[in-house]
Nucleic acid binder design. Sequence first.
DNA 1: ATGAAAGCGCTAACAA
DNA 2: TTGTTAGCGCTTTCAT
Lengths: 366, 366
Amino acid sequence: MASARTPRTADDGSGSRRKSSTAATLGDVATHAGVSPATVSRVLAGNYPVSRSARQRVLRSIRELNYVANTHARALAGVQTKTIAFVLADVRGPSFAEAAHGVEQEAARLGWLCLIGTTQGDRERELAIVRLMREQRAGAVVLIGGVADADDYNEQMTELAYSLRAAGSLLVLCGRPPLATGVPAAVIGYDNEEGAYAITSHVLAQGHRRILFLGGEERHTTSLGRLEGYSRALNTFGVEFDPSLVEHGVFTRASGYQLTKKRLTGARDFTAVFAATDVMAAGVYAAVNEAGLSVPDDISIVGYDDIELAQDLRPRMTSVHVPYEELGRTAAKVAADEDHKREDWPGLQVTLKTHVVVRDSVARLD
Amino acid sequence: MASARTPRTADDGSGSRRKSSTAATLGDVATHAGVSPATVSRVLAGNYPVSRSARQRVLRSIRELNYVANTHARALAGVQTKTIAFVLADVRGPSFAEAAHGVEQEAARLGWLCLIGTTQGDRERELAIVRLMREQRAGAVVLIGGVADADDYNEQMTELAYSLRAAGSLLVLCGRPPLATGVPAAVIGYDNEEGAYAITSHVLAQGHRRILFLGGEERHTTSLGRLEGYSRALNTFGVEFDPSLVEHGVFTRASGYQLTKKRLTGARDFTAVFAATDVMAAGVYAAVNEAGLSVPDDISIVGYDDIELAQDLRPRMTSVHVPYEELGRTAAKVAADEDHKREDWPGLQVTLKTHVVVRDSVARLD
DNA sequence: ATGAAAGCGCTAACAA
DNA sequence: TTGTTAGCGCTTTCAT
């Protein structure tokens, strides 16, 4: 049991404040246990037979030295790191936060770490971050939320999907449309069109015919999907789609407020507002209230996402519930699943259900 | 210009979908530029003289090969990674999200990456995560939000502060009290006591004398600080502190709702409620409304944090504004600042200002 | 079942 | 100014 290096104890129990000695390495554990580094590595990986006695000694040394493997050394030696990178536009969006929470929860449960990056909705920045995450050898990169659609962007993202896959990693698209078929990425989504169709139908069923649609950026996939559902519902009810009833802004309270305020000056040519997100809808409420109008007597309002806020607005807002947390959890599960590394992995597409939650923000028109 | 390895181009321009070849390494760049690896490393680090011509060739090769340094190799070679780890209880808390956003923004601006971990308010998990982040060689670890106070916990965290510092990293406490003096950690905070004092004084000045305080966990530092301010204000106004007017729960809407509901059954012995967070206050509103009572005519309500929600509640809620985003930004700045690595770094404590935002949720009592 | 040794990509001390 | 070389801590053949 030769010992070239002095084993470094993690705590000398002296209780005195001192700089902790540098952390124990695998080599230290090996020395301490009287085995070779390879053996320690083997018991750690558990992918190779090790004698009972050796294993026990190693385990004991690990405990005593308070050993924790160095992730970087591992990564360098070629092992995929158990970190899942997720990138979103802004952590402050409640629905994003919900999804992020789902990812984080599930990742933690599986013993994975989370890297996070935000893009402020900037496509270039998003691409840059995904590249960065690839260099970090993230085990998977999860993209949360829609994007403003664009061809060259899609092309670059597709390229990244392939390159991630080649590196043993995986691109997970969460809450946004798939790339072209055959591209090796997992897609976890919900149906924007369907939910929008359902809630618009609900409004129409209450007798409304002029419904103002407040969307995000014009080419934003989420906004687009919701607009389509809105439009299809009109169609079903035999109401002609009026482009002048569609406004584009961004997914913030301020934007919802401004857009509404603008439409409220002059003749009012709508009886209801469908805000593409609940956060925007909060701005609609504010503008309507400020104009001295009442919800829903003067104007009905519906949103999308069903975040907690929907219950705090007065009157409580009717909205489309999206299982964001579940979305995130699923993404993490897929990311952590080794299955996608198989040569013949067929790709994966999951679509979660949404449903309308009816509250008190839509008046019946007779 | 010998070339043992075939230089690997990043893009063959063929436009066809193919697995990207494995990424170029520093060695590839060296070969391509006809210099030694050391030279490449030098131009990258910029900490050593390199001839103009060599530098230019290297830079060009880097561009052509699309080279990006491997973080893990760097970390292993002993360089601090430019990643700032931040750990908080739950990304879904709006004020946390705000702070997280601040950290993320500033970090990105400085070219740093963010690692995130959540604890669900569990101290053990928090310690475990901080240890993990240390193993990840994070350049700094930022702890956001209060914790339930406990001696042994403080001791372990102190130990971690030293060990982080020894590893060239830094512990940043954000929105929580300092550890013992002399402990090498940065503290970025705001004054919970002061803000609570101010808003309670405001309520008292409106004539209220029986104010229900709804706090979080009993030993939670944030809750504690706010309770102290509440208590001092009572004292200033010559009102005796009544322990039966203090309830403890957790910082969620549901908790605020339940606590209020409980206090609303039977004789009502308070005219105002001070919820320790806005999110809890939303629950208070809900319970009060549900009991058929009116805010502020029957019951006045104030919160703390001044998140966006405060403006969406009706009537709009009076609250204490906390510059969370600024808090996060400051934390990131401090974390990224090399200054703290100096041997004689004196430690750092920043305290941000809060202020009361008066809205419509407090009635004047005469 | 176990150990020796090479190598992952980078940095830094030492030579030249 | 530049190159050579020895690690950083781990995994993984290849021997034994």
